[in-house]
Computed example of a mutant assay.
Amino acid sequence: MIKQPAINVPKSLFAIFLDWVTLLLFLAVIIYLVVQYPSLPDQVPGHYDSSGMVDRWGSKIEMWILPLVGAGLWVLMTIVEKYPHTFNYINLRQDNLEAQYRNAKLMINVLKNESVLLFSFLIFQDIRVANGAAEGLGYFFMPVFLFVIFGSMIIFLIRMLRM
């Protein structure tokens, strides 16, 4: 196994912007959950099927799972983002090393933020469904989510191959 050099590649302004926007939205949704929690019914959505409809109801204490998982995901992916020299690359060369590391760091950052924004949406929508303001996630939730996540990965893989 070839050891890739560890070089310091600063976080881009775009990545910093995404982090702040995502953190602010995630924090706002958690505050919304804290405010709404006392008025939530005892049974809240616990799981959704592929069409976005609730297929399991659970205790309202389960509402704290998504914020915990989202925060844990944020922390872990932020740590991973700092070590692009440990990733696998297809065409890593000395002349494109820094550009490849920048691309990989940004890809992890974008996927991290998309994932945490997904958790934010799910928390918000769980509250709405529990309160009777919505019936589910909607039929287009899963295709849109998959398109965004896989579309982002494809864009960054194409960028990597072009370098």
Rank of each mutant, 00 (worst) to 15 (best):
M1I: 06
K3T: 15
K3I: 15
Q4H: 14
K11T: 15
L13K: 07
F14L: 14
F14K: 13
F17A: 12
W20T: 01
V21F: 13
V21W: 05
L23C: 13
L25A: 11
L27S: 11
L27I: 07
V29C: 01
I30K: 00
I31M: 09
Y32M: 06
Q36N: 07
Q36P: 11
Y37L: 09
P38H: 08
S39R: 11
P41C: 03
D42Y: 02
Q43W: 14
P45A: 09
G46E: 03
G46W: 09
H47C: 02
D49I: 06
S50V: 07
S51N: 12
G52I: 05
M53A: 14
V54E: 09
S59M: 06
S59Y: 01
L66V: 15
L66C: 01
P67S: 02
A71S: 06
W74P: 10
V75W: 07
V75L: 09
L76C: 10
T78D: 12
T78I: 10
T78N: 09
I79P: 13
V80L: 12
E81Q: 13
T86L: 15
N91F: 05
Q94K: 12
A99Q: 14
Y101A: 09
Y101I: 08
N103A: 06
N103E: 14
A104L: 03
A104G: 05
L106N: 05
L106W: 04
N109K: 14
V110A: 07
V110W: 00
L111C: 02
K112T: 00
K112E: 08
L117A: 09
L117T: 15
F119C: 08
L122A: 03
I123V: 15
F124D: 14
Q125A: 10
D126C: 10
R128N: 07
R128Y: 02
V129A: 03
A130K: 02
A134N: 04
G138V: 12
G138D: 03
M142F: 06
F147I: 14
F147L: 15
G151L: 13
S152T: 10
M153L: 06
R159C: 13
R159N: 11
M160S: 14
L161K: 12
L161P: 08
R162C: 05
